[in-house]
Design a protein around this nucleic acid. Structure first.
Lengths: 199, 199
DNA sequence: GTTAGCATGTAAGGAGTTACATGATTTT
DNA sequence: AAAATCATGTAACTCCTTACATGCTAAC
C-alpha cells in the first residue's frame, strides 16, 4: 500500500519490467532506448529507484538463476502489486499524463492502454499546448518590438516547434478516432509488432 | 572574484539587467518572455539567485534592504563586475553554450556577441545534435523490431524534431557566414530593432 | 593477465519547484 | 473597502547528476 515513489523513472521502470524481468544494467539501456531523444537516466537515479520500488513491494530483487559466485547479478521482477501500480499509472488521464516531463513516457506505453485513455491523454496534451500557444502569442504581440532579431528568431522557432507537435497530435487523434469506429482485432491487445494503421 | 553562482537563471538575469535595472517581479516576467517556450522560472529560484549575485558583487540592490519601517521595492542593477561576468558568459563557446539546457539562453543573447562566437556556438550545437542523431539511429536500427507502434511513432517524432532543429541551425549558420562576408554597419552592435537579413 | 564492458551501488550536491508567509499598491 | 495584482521572500522538498567505489566476466 506504500506508494511512496513517483515520477517518470518509476513509471518507465515498471513499464519495462512489465515486459520481462531484467537486471538494472539492461534496464537502463532499454530505458534510454524507449525514451529516445526525450530523456536519459543515470545509474545514480536508477538503482535508488529500484530499491524504493522494492521497499514499496512493487518489484522483487532475485539473484540471477545462474548465480554461483559471490556478488550475483540481480534480476528485478514485477510483483502483482507492481503490475497494479503500473496499470493505475498507465490509465491516469489527468494533467500528470500530459505535462512535458511525463507525456513522453505515457505515450511510450500507449499500447498498454485502451483507445479511450489514449484519446483523453492526446486531447489533454493538445489543449495544454494550445494554452501555451495562446500565452506565448499574446505576450509576443505585446513585447515584439522590444526584442532583437535573435530573440525573435528563437521565439519563432519555439512556437513552430509547438505548432508542429499540435499537428502531430491532431493526426494521432484522428487515427485514434478512426480506430474507435473501425475496431480491429489488434486493438485490445496492442503487442509489439502491431502497426498504427497508416503509413 | 567570487563567481559562485552558475546556471541558466543567473545568465538570463545578468543579460536582462544589462539592458536596464529592474525589480525582481518585472525581471521574472521578462525572463519568461525572452525564454519563451523554453523555460519558466519561479520566484522561489529567482530571489535566491538575486541574493547570490549580490553576494558575488555582480549586482547591487537599491535601496538597501535595511529600510526602516516599510518594506520597499528593490531595484537590481548590474555592477561593473556583473557586466564583466556577463561578457564572459556570453562569449563562452564550449559545451556549456550548446547543451540543451543552456543553448536557448545563449541564443537569446546572441546580439551581445560577435559573429565568430555565434558561429562557433551554432556549429557546436549542430554537431551535438548530429551525434545524438547518430546514436538514436543506430540504437533504432538494432532494436526496432522489439518496439511497438507507439514507441516507434514517438521515436520518429523525436527524431524529426532534432532533424528540424538541424535544418534551422543550417540556415542560421548560412546567414551568419553570409554576414561575415558582407558585413554591414549593424553587425558590431546588434541592438534591438536589427533584423536578420532574410525574411 | 590485462583491458573492456557488465553490473551494482553510495555520498554529495545542483538546480529547481511548491507552498507558504507577508506586505504594498492599484483598480473596481 | 474589497479584490486584484504587484512585490519580496523562506523552508522543505523533489528529482536528478556527478564522481566515486567496488567487483565480476569475457575476450584478446
Amino acid at each position: 500500500m506504500s506508494r511512496r515513489t513517483s515520477g517518470v523513472l518509476e513509471f518507465a521502470v515498471l513499464g519495462l519490467l512489465h515486459d520481462s524481468p531484467m537486471h538494472g544494467y539492461e534496464l537502463r539501456k532499454r530505458l534510454n532506448g524507449v525514451l529516445g531523444t526525450f530523456r536519459a537516466f543515470s545509474y545514480g537515479s536508477l538503482y535508488p529507484c529500484l530499491k524504493q520500488l522494492a521497499d514499496d513491494g512493487c518489484i522483487t530483487e532475485s539473484p540471477a538463476p545462474d548465480a554461483r559466485g559471490r556478488r550475483s547479478k540481480i534480476v528485478y521482477q514485477l510483483t502483482a502489486e507492481g503490475k497494479e501500480r503500473f496499470t493505475d499509472l498507465v490509465s491516469e488521464t489527468g494533467p500528470a499524463s500530459w505535462e512535458d516531463e511525463t507525456f513522453g513516457v505515457h505515450f511510450a506505453f500507449f499500447s498498454r492502454t485502451d483507445s479511450d485513455t489514449r484519446l483523453r491523454i492526446l486531447e489533454g496534451r493538445r489543449s495544454r499546448l494550445e494554452d501555451r500557444l495562446a500565452n506565448v502569442r499574446s505576450s509576443f504581440a505585446r513585447t515584439q518590438e522590444r526584442l532583437d532579431a535573435y530573440t525573435l528568431e528563437l521565439q519563432k522557432h519555439g512556437l513552430e516547434g509547438v505548432e508542429r507537435e499540435v499537428r502531430w497530435l491532431d493526426e494521432l487523434i484522428r487515427d485514434e478516432r478512426r480506430r474507435e469506429q473501425h475496431p480491429t482485432t489488434s486493438d485490445r491487445a496492442n503487442h509489439p509488432g502491431t502497426q498504427i494503421d497508416e503509413e
